[in-house]
Nucleic acid binder design. Structure first.
Length: 854
RNA sequence: GCCCGCUUGGCGGAACUGGUAGACGCAAGGGACUUAAAAUCCCUUGGCCCUCGGGCCGUCCGGGUUCGAGUCCCGGAGCGGGCACCA
């Protein structure tokens, strides 16, 4: 039997593609363009199955669009700055740069073995000065445009490692490496004014109609526009009043306390001469900076002893607390608490025995007796206990309350956003240096554009805690660009989201002296189809959307949105295995035996099978793409990635599924290498007379072309694969003796090769050549379905009685109602079901269903 | 805590906008070929009942809308993801 030599064949086509440079593209105004981009990887060392899935999806789209006549840009690069390089440097004593470049070398060769249609001449790595110098220039332009500024903000500080920790590095309030309790610290940092675009970023979401709804919704919530009012409360015995923001000014008469964020300036002032308050604030600061930590913590507070005066109720004073659930970043960092109509306020009030005064009652409730228990009343209703607001609905009451605040000059209507400005400073080494010099007399001064790039020094010492740039002997010492006195460089580097916010533009002109050329960017952008993980639904995508706005303002380009279409792929999962002593086992350490049980490969000891989870090193349920490609080839891995699950959903990697894909590829190869019957010569005409089965098969080919095309357009890759397999099954069943079979078999095989080309490109080119064609299949136009053959002349219609299927009938398409009813009543199952009953109604849905109601 | 998503046979999934539930694949069982095995090919396969014609039940659970619900609405359960310094 002819055997498919996958390693040899895949290597052969990869080098052919490479030598002929077929995937290198240039701008061509005569042709429609299509820009396919997959989120570029962090060079962690080896590709994982998530990458394989992501890049397979992109490659299918790229190859399909190319066959459809588009000039396709499909580039790849490396998101090469980031913390893991520093961690590796500390753990293995390798320089981050060396570690990163070595990883890039490895991963590039792994990606190449997948046979992806990248234009490798455009490859970039963000850690190269050639790349990051442009973002230093962008930062200078942002500064000049007023889009970058400096302010203090809070960070998680590890006192032992002398470093700032990411939220994920804070475990139970302690540093992940040092184990020391984490402190909140205030640092002066650089921010980008993303909030200036809050409304625009929100409004433009509507136009992103090729984005998943849930991603748009997540961004909408993230931006978090809310309407309300700023209100001023005088504090008894204090000169300065307290400003608060509330979305519920209507509940002002239900206020029973005020609460300050532990980071509020007033709280800080009170702490100066009150050790209890200072201790409470210090404790809050141990909580970490994440919203999750703050929201899940028990609601706690401390009474400051200060009293705020109720704006509309003379003589009523409200105690001012400092509370751990009030965020300094939102509104003014202070609130009035209305326990009856806010759950957090209610929890707090119950704990500190503060009054709970209902001021909104359900419309059908008795206002006198309505009270609130352990659940705040959040719905619409009628205002009660509220003086001039009594009897109004919630919306009317909001307006009336704000109007009164305004007329008494105690507040104003306002819109606030949850979105905060983007802090881009990182106290780390392996990132893009922020091009600023701190001068003792001029303050922070931008580096002159002509002095860019500020190159990250490589001779650093990572063996001690803290930022190595800070203690570098020479690098940071420079003269002030403005006044010339000795000054020091900014030692912070950019957040790595900075690099990924514009790489899609750099790919348009990767060798340009400037960040990118306007010409190339205007030809290629926006990205027509962006593909990546849902984990980037908010930050990366929102920052990139902000970046094109900021770059447009600074004259780099003229673009509304970076990504016109977005596909978010699910995770790659695998069963988990544990030995009897509870240790995780790798899939390659176990085997499946008769009956489905799993045992260890060595010693055949029993293994506990856990449920399928995202592949991760900690659970050891990782399958190395290299091993799969070595054993089965890239096409098998690609086909399995596409055939088992729709792209947005999680995919469960199974050895059996891989085997199935592998068997199918071999079957296809055998069909062309060793056809069941001799084929007609290349280009032979369609036989004039077709047999019945032949004609049915010919129709199926056209239906498959039509179906697969539609599936690929909508990213229903798993259905496309299923259809191609159906066609393959039908081809195998063609009668050997049929006079039209030699032609039909060729027609079927050529079509299968073309349709499966985007998914398994090596095999498809091999099939194409074996069938007698010149390479490359990727340059062939996509097959066209003959729509006359796609629609059958007859239809199968289901016949129901009272909604229950009783049989089916074969009818000419668009048969008359009379014909349909006549045939339907003649179905034996229908006759049985309606015998002796009165027919009340017959529903006929043309070409679909008949429902007899008795 | 807040926000978002998912739930269909033994398993992954299919079913376009409410119209024949289970396409396609995997696994399992049976058979063919073979000295044997692998590979390949063929058949069966949602559950229960059956007089082998068929009957009843069935898309996480409980309600509802409809001639008709996996699909729409209300309520609930379970699982997963995100929460601003991981990328």
């Amino acid at each position: 039997m002819t055997r498919y030599n996958v390693q040899e064949t895949e290597a052969k086509w990869q080098s052919h593609w490479d030598e002929s440079e077929i995937f290198q593209v240039t701008e061509d105004p005569a042709r429609p363009k299509y820009y396919v981009l997959e989120m570029f990887p962090y060079p962690s060392g080896r590709i994982h199955m998530g990458h394989v899935r992501n890049y397979t999806l992109g490659d299918v789209v790229a190859r399909y669009k190319r066959a459809r006549g588009f000039n396709v840009l499909h580039p790849m690069g490396w998101d090469a700055f980031g913390m893991p390089a520093e961690n590796a440097a500390m753990a293995a004593k390798i320089h981050p740069a060396e570690w990163t470049w070595e990883n890039i070398r490895n991963m590039r060769s792994q990606l190449r073995s997948m046979g992806l249609s990248y234009d490798w001449s455009r490859e970039l790595a963000t850690c190269s000065p050639d790349y990051y110098r442009h973002e230093q220039k962008m930062f200078l332009d942002f500064l000049e445009a007023g889009l970058a500024y400096r302010k203090e903000s809070w960070v998680n500080w590890d006192p032992v490692d002398q470093t700032v920790l990411a939220n994920e590095q804070v475990i139970d309030g302690c540093g992940w490496r040092s184990g020391a309790p984490v402190e909140k610290r205030k640092l002066s940092q650089w921010f980008l004014k993303i909030t200036e675009y809050s409304d625009d970023l929100l409004d433009a979401l509507e136009g992103l109609d090729r984005w998943p709804d849930r991603v748009r919704l997540m961004q909408e919530r993230w931006i978090g526009r809310s309407e309300g009012a700023f209100m001023r409360f005088p504090i008894s015995g204090e000169p300065e009043p307290l400003d608060v923001f509330s979305t519920r000014p209507d509940t002002i008469f239900g206020a029973s306390f005020m609460a300050l964020s532990p980071n509020h300036p007033l709280a800080a002032r009170l702490a100066e001469d009150n050790s209890d308050i200072a201790a409470f604030i210090a404790e809050c600061n141990r909580l970490g900076t994440s919203e999750e930590a703050i929201e899940t913590a028990e609601k706690r507070g401390i009474d400051t002893g200060l009293k705020a005066q109720h704006p509309f109720r003379l003589g009523i004073e409200l105690p001012i607390y400092i509370a751990n659930f009030v965020l300094m970043e939102y509104g003014t960092g202070a609130i009035f608490g209305c326990p009856a109509h806010d759950q957090r306020d209610l929890d707090f009030a119950r704990k500190y025995e503060l009054p709970v005064i209902p001021v909104v009652a359900p419309r059908d409730a008795d206002p006198e007796s309505f009270s609130v228990g352990d659940e705040a009343f959040l719905e619409d209703g009628v205002l009660v206990n509220s003086d001039f607001l009594d009897g109004l609905g919630v919306e009317e009451a909001k307006t009336a309350a704000i109007d009164r605040f305004v007329s008494e000059d105690r507040g104003r209507r306002a819109i606030v956003y949850r979105l905060r400005d983007w802090g881009v400073s990182r106290q780390r080494y392996w990132g893009c240096p922020i091009p600023v010099v701190h001068c003792p007399s001029c303050g922070p001064v931008p580096v002159a554009a002509s002095d860019l790039p500020v190159v990250l020094p490589e001779d650093v010492d990572l063996s001690q805690p803290g930022n190595p740039l800070d203690r570098h002997p020479t690098w940071k010492h420079v003269d002030c660009p403005q006044c010339g006195v000795p000054a020091t460089r900014e030692t912070d580097t950019f957040d790595t989201f900075f690099e990924s916010s514009w790489y899609f533009a750099r790919f348009c002109a990767p060798n340009a002296d400037e960040a990118f050329t306007r010409e190339a960017a205007e030809y290629w952008l926006p990205v027509d189809q962006y593909i990546g993980g849902i984990e980037h639904a908010v930050l990366h995508l929102l920052y990139s959307r902000f970046f094109v706005r900021a770059l447009s303002r600074c004259g780099y380009l003229d673009l509304a949105e970076p990504f016109a279409g977005l596909l978010t792929q699910g995770m790659v999962c695998h069963e988990t295995y544990r030995s009897a002593d509870g240790k995780w086992l790798e899939p390659s350490d176990v085997k499946r035996i008769e009956g489905g049980a799993v045992v260890t490969l060595e010693g055949e000891r029993p293994v506990d099978i856990g449920r399928s989870e995202k592949m991760s090193k900690s659970k050891k349920n990782v399958v190395d793409p290299d091993h799969i490609i070595a054993a089965y080839g890239a096409d098998t891995a690609r086909l399995f990635m596409l055939s088992d699950s729709p792209p947005e959903r999680d995919l469960e990697w199974t050895e059996a599924g891989v085997e199935g894909a592998w068997r199918y590829l071999n079957r296809l190869y055998r069909l062309v290498a060793d056809p069941p019957i001799p084929l007609t010569p290349v280009g032979a005409g369609r036989p004039a007379d077709m047999t019945g089965p032949g004609e049915a098969f010919e129709r199926l080919v056209h239906k498959t072309i039509d179906g697969v095309s539609g599936d690929l357009e909508r990213f229903h890759f798993n259905r496309a694969v299923a259809r191609i397999r159906e066609l393959t099954n039908a081809l195998a069943e063609l009668p050997v003796e049929g006079p039209d079979s030699p032609w039909l078999t060729r027609f079927g095989l050529e079509t299968i090769a073309q349709l499966i080309g985007p998914m398994t490109p090596h095999l498809a080119d091999e099939m194409w050549q074996t069938l007698g064609h010149e390479p490359f299949l990727v340059d062939m136009p996509w097959p066209e379905a003959d729509m006359k053959l796609v629609t059958d002349e007859t239809v199968t219609v289901g016949v129901q009685v009272n909604g229950k299927l009783r049989g089916t009938i074969e009818l000419p398409r668009d048969a008359s109602r009379e014909t349909v009813e006549g045939e339907a009543f003649a179905v034996p199952g229908v006759e049985r079901a309606i015998a002796g009953k009165e027919i009340r109604k017959v529903v006929v849905v043309p070409n679909r269903i008949v429902n007899v109601v008795v």
